[in-house]
Write a protein that binds this DNA or RNA. Sequence first.
DNA 1: AGCACGCCGACT
DNA 2: GTCGGCGTGCTC
Length: 647
Amino acid sequence: MWVDVAFNLPLREPLTYRVEGEVPVGVRVRAPVRGRVLTGYVVGVRGNPPSGVAPEDLKPVEKVLDEEPLFDGRVLSLAQWVSSYYLCGLGEALSAMIPGGRVQREAPVPYDEPAAYRRHRLSPAQREAVEAVLSCTHPMFYLWGVTGSGKTEVYLTVAEHMLERGKGVLYLVPEIALTRQVVETIRARFGQDVAVLHSRLTASQRLAEWRRIVRGEVRFVIGARSAVFAPIGDLGLIVLDEEHESSYKSGATPRYHARQVAMHRARTEGALLLMGSATPSLEAYHLMHTGRLPFFHLPERVAGGEPPRIEIVSLKDHPGPLSKPLLREIERTKKEGKQTILFLNRRGFAHYVGCRACGFEMTCRHCSLPLTYHRAEEVMVCHYCGYRTRPIDVCPSCGSVDVRYSGPGTEQVEKQLRETFPFYRIARLDTDTARKKGVLERVLEEMESGQVDVLLGTQMIAKGFNFPRLGLVGVVLADTGLHMPDFRAAERVFSLLVQVAGRAGRFMPGGRVVIQTYLPDHPGIVCAREHDLRRFYEEELEVRKETLFPPFSRLVRLVFRGRDERKVERDAGGFASLLSADLPEGVELLGPAPCPMERIAGNYRYHLFLRSSSLAPMHGLLARTLPLFRPSSGVHLEVDVDPVQVV
DNA sequence: AGCACGCCGACT
DNA sequence: GTCGGCGTGCTC
Ligand SMILES: [Zn+2]
Ligand SMILES: [Zn+2]
């Protein structure tokens, strides 16, 4: 017989091979492609050789790797949908979906929150929510509720109902939230018939979990982004917790978004997609408020508690890194016998090193980005490519000694803290300090038992506020990212602040939140202080409407990158003219232009955008033009449908 | 993606 | 005269 095999290559069509005996669709095989032997997926079997290729040209499969198929027709048609929606090869789609098809990057280790989850009786609001979800006839439903409003209990109760009806359940959480605690909670409630698809498992462990799902041994799957492809049969429910999280978007081809894939699965497999967040994405909010997404608002915390008082401190009036008002709050908190958490999403000492006399800036030699000064190691580091070089105290351009180190990072804030409060116990958690195994756990333990007065950290500590003596949360700089030409920057800042305030309110009743910023009038910051979500969403929607960005349009981003800037620019321009020659009605072509981060790790980057009110004409255009275009040697083209990252 | 083929510039 | 760059085609 003959088999059609899809490889992890940007090929349009599968290749056909000869094979001895019966081989089913869904197994992996090793087969020769142009001299080298690659692993591919059998996506079709045939009794006769295909027409168009001479039968004697068909090579034999070298080895059949699986006895049992890894996927069925349903998974295959999902792969076909991914390949046409995200414009990649079928084999590339399958490789992203099935464990072992890709070398996955080690994910950051999330830590467990100490407090165990206990099963509660449903509050009246939760009961109402469950009923609304279960009576929903639409394929999607949104649960909008602050941290601590009991969304998890609603998800799990709905899941229970689905399992009782014999339906499969897929439970998606952001990678960072996939803690042992969460998994144990689920296992405690649903028994051992739960599969976990973790990116920190080894490839073979993940494949073993995948096989258990294929065989129908488990009916409940929990996992992060890529678990959205889990081959659960008779799917009844997909939970997408923290819907707004950008980690649901893949950073490699195919650049799929778990929310988009989940929507497609819900529609085609007759399941319900239940999303939830305290801060819905603007896309979700827009759908809800135009009647296209039924939702339920969980209005308050199950355990009661007031939202925390939020104070905004302008760094223009009160110089930092830690302003006088914030330092006073830290001191007061300590005097009350309580603890402080400080956030700053920048590690290192200074993020900008430059000359005051001539304006020279110390940038990476491989990237168009400033280098960060790391004081402990006495070195300048590029956070994008890892390039390291020696710090300067004399300007290499003009010889002046007036060299300025600005843009404080966690190292510098730690220094200021220790100088201001020499007797406080201060701990810092960022990738630099937590690199050593066990440090993270130890520091969090010390924090919990009250041996730390001030905990300073990056994103790493954003999820955990569950410390009994916590009295103050400080955001050292709220405006990170707001200077970038990124239409989602405001949304991200707002979302982060509301999430921080929400967790502070949940775990720190009567506590205080201080937000430092250079932009005290920024709507994202003002609305977060006022707890006025509606106003932020409405104002931001107005901005998106005027500028015609999502949710008022759909985007496709095309990024060209390579070492030779002239070739990159030429290819971007060449493809742009190919597109504009065939541009359908209602599709706009923006660019080409250098990306805001125009050089990373030695690669120059240019991008162009297609914009339209719907994806269909852009899909059509790209399906026609991409096969006609081939980047020059040394230039790579990446297609990003519904981009999240635009710099 | 990666690898072979083949065509033109510059270097022993 | 050849070496090697890269644009082009193709992979069962
Ligand atoms: Zn760099
Ligand atoms: Zn200078």
